[in-house]
């Protein structure tokens, strides 16, 4: 059993007065991978924001390699090795592609040439401004930017959302390669349930801020009736958006 990288214990968190996450507990081992599934608005993004330290934690604890990080500032969590790919990509528009990659880079295996090898399209656009990219390129840049901080854990918030099928394939393959080759742990929030389950080893389904179902991706893939019940609507919604 690999060592525990991140552990959440009965975390309740939200924004201001409202509590979105209602008692989440989960553990992720070094190099592990976890798909976070569920309908829109159940708290998947809030979970990632809570791990980053951008929400108000009401109770519960969060540990990183055994150390309590509940009160650690977001930029320090990033420096501890948590890489964050935000849902809206949030590319820095007034930085070039290459500056987006170097602005927060930390020394390690993922340097600029390495992420260009993973996403060759970005190399072609290195001098473009961050705002002048297609949706797929922005997503690649968001992932590449998080990688240059050389994280031990990558939080991916719907990286495939709204992208053309061919780009989805390309990105999913890159994410898979990154996990396999580098042993980077991943928490993957995704609407494309099938892709998410095929990429991650384990999965949880969130409903109304709590974990409704957890298990290995393989068993969950086989449990179609539970998936339909908990996220069924979402599959069609995601499909509609994909077109």
């Amino acid at each position: 059993m690999a060592e525990t990288l991140l552990a959440l214990d009965d975390v309740r968190a939200g924004y201001g007065e409202s509590v979105v996450l209602d008692g989440i507990s989960l553990e992720l081992a070094e190099g592990g991978s976890l798909a976070v599934l569920g309908r829109n608005g159940v708290g998947k993004t809030t979970l990632l924001l809570t791990i980053m330290g951008f929400t108000r934690v009401v109770s519960g604890s969060m540990r990183w390699r055994g150390r309590d990080i509940g009160r650690v500032a977001p930029h320090r969590r990033a420096r501890l090795g948590i890489g964050w790919v935000a849902q809206e990509r949030e590319i820095f528009a007034s930085l070039t592609v290459e500056e987006n990659l170097t602005v927060a880079a930390r020394a390690g295996r993922w340097d600029v040439p390495a992420v260009y090898r993973l996403f060759p399209r970005l190399a072609e656009r290195r001098r473009n401004m961050g705002s002048h990219l297609s949706g797929g390129e922005q997503q690649m840049l968001a992932i590449a930017r998080a990688l240059t901080t050389n994280p031990a854990l990558l939080l991916l918030d719907e990286p495939l959302e709204g992208l053309a099928p061919i780009i989805v394939e390309e990105l999913a393959e890159a994410i898979g390669r990154m996990m396999a080759e580098e042993g980077t742990a991943v928490v993957l929030v995704e609407q494309h349930t099938d892709v998410a389950l095929s990429l991650a080893r384990d999965a949880v389904v969130i409903e109304r801020g709590a974990i409704a179902l957890r298990g290995s991706s393989r068993t969950m893939m086989a449990d179609q009736s539970s998936l339909d019940r908990l996220i069924g609507l979402n599959l069609t919604a995601a499909d509609d958006r994909g077109r």
Partner: peptide
């Protein structure tokens, strides 16, 4: 670049480790 990144999107800059 960090100044510009922080002007563009403070939260994202923090999330990447920029103080």
């Amino acid at each position: 670049a960090q100044v510009r990144a922080a002007v563009d999107n403070q939260r994202m800059a923090q999330g990447l480790g920029v103080d």
